[in-house]
């Protein structure tokens, strides 16, 4: 579903409100980590502090995808190949999205069904590209073949 400029603005406003809540990042990552017994293993050697700091820039990247900024889809496809080298299954991307939205719901006081729909629409393209990258690590780059 196409995302409007107003919806992008609502997405950023919701993200700013959620981020203003000091528990937001911990709420999200704690919930994500405990959502499956397999997940902590993927982050065994990850600097979680850094990962938390990077969340906002990752989400910004997702909004650039919606704007169809040139090269962003290729870059996200590249990220999906890097993630695939860790053998992350496609289903985890959906779990990531669901737990992120739960954390936003908890931390954005203005969160409602409409905002949930906006969050899902904005992030769906990025999630689809990341999930489509599963198994791509050993394959040639799709955009240069």
């Amino acid at each position: 579903m196409a995302v409007t400029e107003d919806e992008i603005l609502q997405f950023h406003a919701s993200l700013d409100r959620a981020s203003a809540n000091p528990v937001f990042l911990d709420a999200f990552y704690d919930s994500f980590m405990s959502s499956s017994k397999d997940i902590p293993g993927y982050f065994e050697h990850t600097d979680m502090g850094r990962l938390k700091r990077k969340l906002k820039s990752s989400l910004h990247m997702m909004t650039l995808l919606v704007d169809e900024s040139p090269g962003v889809d290729m870059y996200v496809a590249h990220l999906s190949r890097v993630h695939d080298s860790y053998r992350i299954p496609a289903a985890l991307y959906q779990v990531w999205l669901d737990t992120l939205i739960e954390a936003v719901q908890r931390c954005d006081p203005l969160f409602d069904r409409n905002l949930e729909s906006i969050w899902r629409n904005v992030l769906s393209r990025g999630i689809a590209i990341m999930a489509a990258g599963v198994g791509s690590h050993a394959s040639p780059m799709p955009f240069v073949s």
Binding site: S69, P70, G71, V72, D73, M74, Y75, F143, V144
Partner: peptide, 11 residues
């Protein structure tokens, strides 16, 4: 391509 150039920039 233009897309590829911007990918390299982001890369």
């Amino acid at each position: 391509s233009f897309q590829l150039l911007h990918f390299l920039k982001m890369w």
